[in-house]
Design a protein around this nucleic acid. Structure first.
Lengths: 129, 129
DNA sequence: GGTATCCTACTACAGTTGTCGGAGCATGGC
DNA sequence: GCCATGCTCCGACAACTGTAGTAGGATACC
């Protein structure tokens, strides 16, 4: 079997997001935050998820007096890039260009974003040619 | 468990890509194409993958004289969009803007792509404001 | 007509992921 | 000291995924 190991599933992702957004936290903290976000998971489920991610080295834990405190070990950026690269490789032959074009065409960018993009592209285009 | 059902795994994706690229094909055809692409899978593995995708309605099959011929039922665009949307939702709060900016900044677009983008953005910007 | 070849149908199995439950230890109040 | 509460440890189970073997029918070739 393809031992991919070291990628995050959807539920695991939800959990590590809490750590990214709120910093180090205990199982209970995470659970509470998830509840607030509408994701209701049992305490032990959250615990399992955190343990598994610790094994995969995505988070680390420190025993405080009261309970283990978990901390994200990988940045959101890193995980984002990894997933983006996967998508790029799987669906776009690894080329970002077509994806960008498609996104600009089909997805709705805000006026503000379009302007930023405009500026950015102006620079790139003039510096590149 | 979250019965997501109806999404494709990586191996399944590789298989349906063959159908997208080469049109309807038998198990053996698909296997051969995969071999050519460096993906060596047993005949029955390819068969299993095709069967599973048929159950998930991603492909359909027709019995020809010799063997079943499988055909993609979903377009590459549809699958791409579904995966892209998932990424967008999971990592970008569903907003395409930040992803576009990030891609344009960090990934290397070809000069050609930058120009296309430039044109596109010119249009959008003037029409939008 | 026997033998090699190919196809389908089933079954299997391990690893990953989502989800928990229960046992048992620690702690803080009463 | 006893009990409620909370925490950790382990085990479990089902669905999904990757991968393939086997059995048995059909075909085709000599």
């Amino acid at each position: 079997m393809t031992l991919r190991q070291y990628e995050l599933g959807g539920a695991e992702l939800d959990v590590v997001k809490v750590l990214w957004d709120n910093g180090p936290a205990t199982v209970r903290d995470v659970m509470t935050h998830l509840h607030n976000r509408g994701r209701r998971l049992a305490y032990t489920t959250v615990q399992t998820l955190l343990n598994r991610m610790e094994q995969k080295k995505f988070v680390s834990s420190n025993k405080s007096d009261l309970a283990y405190v978990y901390k994200a070990k990988v940045s959101r950026e890193r995980v984002t890039k990894s997933r983006l690269d996967r998508l790029l490789n799987q669906m776009y032959d690894g080329a970002a260009g077509p994806l960008v074009l498609q996104l600009v065409k089909s997805e709705k960018l805000s006026q503000d974003e379009i302007e930023q993009l405009h500026k950015l592209v102006d620079e790139l285009d003039s510096s590149g040619s």
